[in-house]
Design a binder for these strands. Structure first.
Length: 917
RNA sequence: CCCUCGGUGGCGAAAUGGUAGACGCAGUGGACUUAAAAUCCACCGCCCUAAAAAGCGUGCCGGUUCGAGUCCGGCCCGAGGGACCA
């Protein structure tokens, strides 16, 4: 039989059934399966970024990362690792909620349908996930732990001396003076310290979505990342997480991670650490009378203090209250500006003089204090000293308002010297500030985790005890947060959970000795990120229900910092693969939560993800007709023509075009595209339903087989680059597998054509060099080059088969084994036909036989002045002198030298001979 | 403006400073076949050629080196991120 789609599909179904029935991918744990030989091996945790089960289904781009992790996981299993690889679902989220709003159906139903659909689509690909370790964030048992982690964060504070989180009870012990506080006073005081706290401060309010958003969810244009609605700054009472306490560790610990520079730079920029100084200025009114308030500014350039000619405060700055000029108008306007307006006005300088002056401590000059919106309340102190001679923005402002620009002033020679002076003078101190803001953690949404928080009649928040978790979502009459006209910034949020009074108003015994009392539940829900902040821990023990979030023994075995320190001792997941879009959202939040859990002793590694790999995206061509309407990409025909034959006349030839046309002459080919006889035009970008260019894994698997699909995706190019999908190129992958099949099975007779005999020596050389190379490529996550080397080997063996009529077993087994991580179904089938009874999943990856790696001779290029003119093959043991003599003796070289004197000969044995003449 | 990553045939791409274009797609020619498909073999950067040889070639300009796609400096272009952050 020929290995075609029909046979491939049969084989794939057979082995998927086998794997399921035999629990092939169920990974043993060291304590529950101490006798399993696998647990003696080195642990290796490989993980995909948590998928959100979308209703749209998967296109061929989605599984790229899942196949890559599967290939790596399978390779690691064959090279002596105990591999943990599973997939769960991040199932809370906006799309399911929006579907629920539209249909009135509970979002759980839609979510579960989508998960089932995604599981089905993925199951055809033969991904070796441990089925016993899957879960979804919406399961009560999972929610319980998400809420439990929230509780621990809520119940902790950041000890600045220890530079880590500690239980809030330790803080209370340090402050006996708080004993006299009332409940309300103590609650308010602790709120200032808790890592999860209630804040009343300007937040990103998005009327169009009816919810508040985190800074990370707002685009540079001041719009919501989801839905692209305007976002307004509005003062509201909301939950926040004190991620800023960790700013320094989140920044410096990047050093121990094996992540790309790109993502490290993105996090580094987002955290935005900058060194500088606070400087305090005395403030006077227009009569030069000193008032009691001081002006504290932040600057990164304290050395330019003498050049300051004015000061600027943000419109929200408290000193604005004391302005002696009429500034109300300006302040109103500035505050009313949305982020969108601010973005658009960036560069234009507006402001108003406050009537106040700041006294420059270095020269006692009176600096006028302006109020201007180019200074942001959220950064530093919300106030600056303006040095127009050195700072572009200050300069623009000074020009607009005709303020003095001190061009040649004396600077400190260094910043440290300036800080020293300031500190000695007692008018300020060196400091470090961060751009990172605290993480706004509550949302006015239905489809998220409820908070484990209730309020008493005084409004004091209480944590529910662990044994009252999880708090499940109530039924509500409708799921919609009240949304508003997207520009209506005066609207107020209305969480959907507030619509079920029976749920909101409860009588509970919080086990605090106060008995049954009346409470009101928190009606906000957690943001989508909550569930994905800790899911990687759940894979270690998907059914765990102990006292803490993860079984400490399993955490130590799988994630301890000792087994994967390629860069620093971070511990955590060995390999984490996903798109770069989560660089500052999920990856920052998860690191934060992990560090809190680490500080409190619940996990043993300081970081959650040791090596991060960002796969590229599979792009696609789309085609539009002359009206700009998309046409089905699959039905577009490409017609190539060489421009010499009858060129498409170029209407607007620039001189450059003309030149290139003439110089490159006739043979440039142009490709034009036609749909139903009409010319259409190519675009390159995403795959999407509306672009009519979606290709699904299902259709490729049906037409070529899942193994072919896997090989094709892995062979397209380096995994971290984006590249276009090309269905017609998939046959290349199929041809390799067909060739592999024919190396083991006779298509006519279905008999094995493998013999326990040896073929020629050179073939063994190719075989062993391939083994060596494929190991290296796979270890470095370069399946594309691994595949190309396997193809070379397959072609070599095809030649052997042609010559002698059989294939040596050693070679056949090796190539089947090496193909197994990439195309596991066909590998299992061939492995079985080769006489093996057990799964290939845990078979040993082929090892190199050193004796075949040594060459007797080696061929090198012979250059004259760096240009290759000939080549030469010599014994590997040849000396430099012998290489030189032989190279100079070549007829071709003598001819090219044409009697010129040889100045020097560079010989790198086995590499190159270069004659300098 | 700042940060990161890219730029190599018709296309996707290979290449520890050492014979640029492995491997795949498309294309061309051949074998097999009544024929087609499939398969197998060969060719396949540009230019000049009957064919070679020579010449030119990794975005551009310089530099380092016996030797540069690779290292250094300066530009151009593209993608992503950040940006009135003091």
């Amino acid at each position: 039989m020929r290995y075609d789609a029909g046979l491939a599909n049969k084989i794939e179904a057979k082995w998927q059934r086998f794997w399921k029935e035999n629990n092939t991918f169920v990974t043993p744990d060291p304590d529950s399966n101490p006798d399993d030989p696998r647990v003696k091996k080195e642990p290796y945790v490989v993980m995909d970024m948590f998928p959100y089960p979308s209703g749209a289904g998967l296109h061929v781009g989605h599984p790229l990362g899942y196949i890559a992790t599967d290939v790596t996981a399978r390779f690691m299993r064959m090279t002596g690792k105990n591999v943990l690889h599973a997939l769960g679902y991040d199932a809370f989220g906006l799309p399911a909620e929006q579907h629920a709003i539209k249909t009135g159906q509970h979002p759980r139903i839609n979510t579960e349908n989508n998960m089932a659909n995604m599981r089905h689509q993925l199951s055809m690909l033969g991904l070796a996930h441990d089925p016993s370790r899957t879960f979804a964030t919406i399961e009560p048992e999972y929610m319980r732990w998400t809420q439990w982690i929230f509780s621990k964060i809520y119940d902790s504070y950041f000890d600045k001396d220890l530079n880590k989180a500690r239980p809030i009870s330790e803080l209370i012990k340090k402050h006996p003076e708080w004993d006299s506080f009332s409940d309300k006073e103590l609650s308010d005081k602790l709120n200032e310290y808790r890592l999860a706290y209630i804040s009343e401060s300007p937040v990103n309010w998005c009327p169009g979505l009816g919810t508040v958003l985190a800074n990370e969810e707002v685009t540079a244009e001041g719009r919501s990342e989801r839905g692209n609605f305007p976002v307004f700054k509005k003062k509201m009472k909301q939950w926040s997480m004190r991620i800023t306490a960790y700013a320094d560790r989140l920044d410096s610990d990047l050093a121990m991670l094996d992540w790309t520079e790109k993502v490290k730079a993105m996090q580094h920029n987002w955290i935005g650490k900058s060194h500088g100084a606070y400087i305090e200025f005395s403030v006077t009114d227009s009569q030069s009378t000193t008032i009691s308030e001081k002006l504290k500014v932040f600057t990164t350039r304290p050395d330019t203090l003498r050049g300051a000619t004015f000061a600027v405060i943000a419109p929200e700055h408290p000193l604005v209250q004391l302005a002696t000029e009429d500034v109300a108008n300006y302040v109103e306007q500035a505050k009313a500006k949305s982020a969108v307006d601010r973005q658009q006005d960036a560069g234009k300088k507006t402001g108003v003089f406050s009537g106040l002056f700041a006294i420059n401590p270095i020269n006692n000059k009176q600096l006028p204090i302006y109020i201007a919106d180019y200074v942001l309340m959220g950064y530093g102190t919300g106030a600056i000293m303006a040095v127009p001679a050195d700072d572009k923005r200050d300069h623009e402002f000074a020009e607009t308002f005709e303020i003095e620009i001190a061009e040649n002033y004396e600077k400190f020679v260094s910043i440290p010297e300036a800080i020293k002076w300031i500190e000695e003078k007692g008018c300020g101190e060196g400091t470090t500030t961060y751009r990172l803001r605290d993480w706004l953690f509550s949302r006015q949404r239905y489809w998220g985790e409820p908070f484990p928080i209730v309020y008493d009649e005084e409004g004091i928040p209480y944590l529910l005890p662990d044994n009252m978790l999880p708090v499940l979502l109530p039924d509500v009459p409708n799921y919609e947060p009240r949304t508003f006209d997207s520009d209506d910034e005066n609207s107020e949020p209305e969480p959907p959970l507030g619509r079920n009074d029976d749920w909101v108003y409860v009588e509970l015994d919080l086990q605090d000795g106060k008995g049954l009392r009346k409470f009101r539940r928190e009606t906000n829900t957690m943001p989508n990120w909550a569930g994905s902040c800790w899911y990687y821990l759940r894979y270690l023990n998907a059914k765990w229900s102990g006292d803490t979030v993860v079984d400490p023994k399993l955490d130590k075995y799988w994630l301890s910092p000792n087994h994967n320190s390629t860069v620093g001792k971070s511990g955590g997941v060995d390999l984490y693969v996903g798109g770069v879009e989560h660089a500052v959202l999920h990856l920052l939040y998860a690191r934060f939560w992990h560090k809190v859990l680490f500080d409190l002793g619940y996990v043993s590694s300081p970081e959650p993800f040791h090596k991060l790999f960002n796969q590229g995206y599979i792009q696609a061509y789309a085609y539009t007709d002359s009206r700009g309407v998309y046409v089905p990409a699959a039905e577009v025909e490409a017609v190539s023509s060489s421009s010499s034959a009858q060129a498409v006349p170029s209407q607007s030839s620039s001189p450059a075009d003309l030149e290139s046309n003439t110089s490159t002459s006739a043979a440039k080919t142009t490709t034009r595209y036609f749909y139903k006889g009409e010319e259409v035009f190519q675009e390159y970008g995403k795959m999407g339903k509306s672009l009519l260019n979606v290709v699904t894994p299902d259709e490729i698997a049906e037409k070529y087989g899942a193994d072919t699909f896997r090989i094709y995706e892995m062979s397209m190019g380096p995994l971290d680059l984006s590249r276009p999908w090309e269905t017609r190129a998939v046959v290349g992958a199929q041809r390799y597998l067909q060739r592999l099949w024919r190396l083991v099975v006779d298509e006519e007779t279905d008999e094995l054509i493998v013999l326990d005999q040896e073929c020629d020596f050179d073939t063994y050389k190719v075989l062993n060099k391939t083994i060596e190379a494929v190991r290296v490529e796979m270890e470095n996550i370069r399946p594309n080059t691994a595949i190309s080397k396997l193809i070379v080997l397959a072609n070599r063996l095809t030649g052997v088969l042609k010559n002698v009529g059989w294939v040596p077993r050693e070679a056949a087994e090796a190539i089947v084994l090496m193909t197994a991580p990439l195309a596991p179904h066909i590998a299992e089938e061939l492995w079985q036909r080769l006489g093996h009874t057990d799964t290939i999943t845990y078979a040993d990856f082929p090892k190199v036989n050193e004796k075949y790696l040594k060459d007797d001779t080696v061929k090198v290029g012979v250059q004259i002045n760096g240009k290759v003119r000939s080549e030469l093959e010599m014994s590997v043991s040849a000396t430099k002198e012998e290489w030189e003599k032989a190279a100079l003796g070549l007829d071709r070289i003598q001819e090219m030298l044409d009697g010129k004197a040889v100045k020097k000969v560079i010989v790198v044995p086995g590499r190159i001979v270069n004659i300098v003449a």
